[in-house]
């Protein structure tokens, strides 16, 4: 039975949503070395682009993860990078089916819509855009995904079949067919006709978001048209 939530972009009653509740892991997938997708039973509705706070037990401070599943999917899923020196992700990586985890209800205001836009991500920053794609927001979007190696482009088959030529994979560390060889920021620099009317959604590390945002500002994209989500 799903809880009914007021979809409030994380503002109203936000604090009441922070307490974590126990959920059960349905399965965990290794997407490539050090990158996992964790699936839970879904007990709440969410808006594509929102996050959940997750912890394995209440002794570890929870961290925020973007939901990467669609709003109609049965399971709620997140992506995470294993940080070997971290407190939480080594524990997350050890989870298996049936294990309990502590998870908040979804919240956050990095929300997509059905207007033409650019989705720009690095690494696991693709997560909210997959959620948006699977929630019917793909129309009119251009997707730019940056990664170091050819296996960094999580869900690439889904993105390719949905966006075709409007899905650009920028691979900084390897040459491979169908990939732009170079950094995402290099690809962005090379674009000389970026729309000033569309919104640019950026998601990933602070380094990536700040660099891409600077490029967009240099290219005279108004800050009104730049939406950023930084993983911290």
């Amino acid at each position: 039975m799903r809880n009914t939530l007021i979809m409030d972009a994380g503002l109203v009653d936000f604090i009441e949503k922070l307490p974590l509740s126990k959920q059960i892991v349905t399965h965990i997938e290794l997407l490539r070395k050090g990158v996992y997708m964790l699936h839970f039973l879904r007990t709440a509705d969410f808006l594509p682009g929102q996050v959940v706070a997750i912890s394995t037990d209440l002794s570890v401070p929870p961290r925020l993860y973007s939901i990467c599943s669609g709003e109609q999917d049965e399971k709620l899923s997140v992506l995470f990078n294993l940080k070997s020196d971290g407190l939480l992700t080594p524990k997350l990586a050890q989870l298996s089916q049936g294990d309990p985890v502590w998870i908040s209800t979804p919240f956050g205001a990095f929300l997509g819509d059905d207007q033409p836009a650019w989705w720009i991500a690095a690494g696991t920053g693709i997560a909210p855009f997959r959620s948006m794609m699977r929630s019917g927001m793909a129309n009119g979007k251009t997707v730019i995904h940056g990664g170091r190696s050819a296996d960094s482009f999580y869900f690439q088959n889904e993105f390719l079949s949905t966006f075709g030529e409007n899905y650009i994979r920028c691979c900084s560390g390897e040459h491979a067919e169908g990939l732009y060889h170079g950094r995402l920021t290099q690809w962005m620099q090379e674009q000389d006709r970026l729309s000033k009317d569309q919104t640019y959604y950026l998601c990933g590390s602070a380094e990536m978001v700040v660099e891409v945002r600077d490029i967009l500002i240099e290219k005279e994209i108004p800050i009104d048209k730049i939406m950023s989500e930084i993983y911290f």
Binding site: A9, G10, L11, F14, I15, V51, L64, F107, G108, A109, F110, V209, I223, D224, I226, M227, S228, E229, I230
Partner: peptide, 18 residues
């Protein structure tokens, strides 16, 4: 909220009102 999001990405998850 809408303005703070433009200059401070943290507003997406921890809004000033909260």
């Amino acid at each position: 909220h809408a303005e703070r999001k433009k200059i401070m990405p943290i507003e997406n998850v921890y809004p000033i009102q909260a």
